[in-house]
Amino acid sequence: MSRGNWSDPTVQGEFESWSRLLGVQSEALQDWTYEAAVAVSTARRALLVPFDDYLDATGTRQGWNMFVGAHRFPTRAEIAVREGYTWTTVFRERDAEASWQAARFDTERMRASIFAWGWPSGVKHWTSACKTFAAALFEERSGIDAVRCQFIKARTPTAAEARAGTAPEGEAVFVRVVTRP
């Protein structure tokens, strides 16, 4: 559990909703929730210690936190290459026009990874992954001198906005640039 992820507007929105419903301050609710979650996680961790070897060997852990909420500010991964002064996007999630290595990116395991890397706690892995993407692109394309990996973070349009054909603007986050060595 990473409290750093709670700075995300999706999480803050959840706390706002619940604090309104419960009639408490959002900050107080967050502090209380975090302390309770740490206490429960610590106790659970301690109870599982005798079973760790068995669980590691068999892969039989129980983890069912699936689609726990609406991610209202999701991220979309993008990879671009620079040739001279021009940046060209070679990969964008679910974009047939920018489909470098799309078959790999489309597998569920890569999707799960990219989802996790779009949160503050995943930046370390995103930075590491970007270096591997860059190395592969430098090898494939001799003319490029830099690779940029970033996420576009944007609020998902509501149904009313989608009907009206409007979409909120996004912003680039976790931008990493690797230059040719």
């Binding site: 699936m66 689609f67 726990v68 909420g69 999701p74 979309r76 989802f115 509501t158």
Partner: peptide, 27 residues
């Protein structure tokens, strides 16, 4: 997994918009 779904978008007294948002998510 049901007990994990404590988001205000899941519970019956909430906005019930989780499915809409999940289906819009490019990931």
């Amino acid at each position: 997994t049901a007990w994990h779904k404590l988001s205000s978008g899941w519970v019956p007294w909430g906005s019930l918009d989780v499915l809409w948002y999940v289906l819009q998510q490019p990931t």
